[in-house]
Amino acid sequence: MAQAKTTLRTTAAAKAASKAPTNATADKLVGTLRDTMVSLVRRDGPDLSARQLAVFLTCYLQEEGHTVRGLAAELNVSKPAITRALDRLGELDLARRKVDPLDRRSVLVQRTLKGAAYLREIRSIMGETSTVAKKETETRVVRATRRAA
């Protein structure tokens, strides 16, 4: 009986330990996302909503061509919501729409040079915030090790 309790505790501890790195990784990613979003909001430049950013990133990070209908299906939102997001992205010259010459009922979403530059900027900010977060984590580990010793 005592052995069974010990085994259950050991199993529970192992499960908790296996989740810890995932939680730590998720915490780091969420921190990087927060720091990136704060940097984007603070700087001079377009301030996109979550939906607009999702549409933008989907168009720029996935190679295949995109349509309003396809984006709506992929992001699980209505076509009018995609249209509003694309209206804003078009105002900022981050994306543009063009009628598909092969199927005039379909609207294609095209990338722009300004949009590509904006994506480079996002990547740069994320790289910087990720590097800072990594250094902060290393510093905390060193301090914790010193205290434990």
Rank of each mutant, 00 (worst) to 15 (best):
R51S: 03
K98D: 15
R69G: 05
L108E: 09
M37Y: 06
V77Q: 09
L40G: 01
T131H: 04
L113A: 15
V142I: 10
V77G: 02
R146Y: 09
A144L: 15
T131Y: 05
R146S: 15
T10L: 09
K5M: 11
P80K: 05
V30Q: 14
T112L: 12
L33K: 02
D47N: 07
E138K: 08
A73E: 14
R143I: 10
R143H: 08
K114I: 08
A73Q: 15
K114N: 05
K98Q: 14
R111V: 04
V141F: 03
D87H: 13
V30W: 07
D35S: 13
R42A: 00
S49H: 08
S39L: 05
A73M: 12
E138D: 09
E138H: 02
T11Y: 05
T112W: 05
L33D: 10
L119D: 02
A4N: 11
S49W: 02
T6M: 06
Y60I: 12
A144F: 07
Y60V: 03
D87P: 01
L57Q: 05
P80A: 11
K79Y: 06
R96I: 09
L48I: 01
V41T: 04
D93H: 08
R88A: 11
T10G: 06
V55N: 03
D100A: 14
R96N: 11
P101N: 11
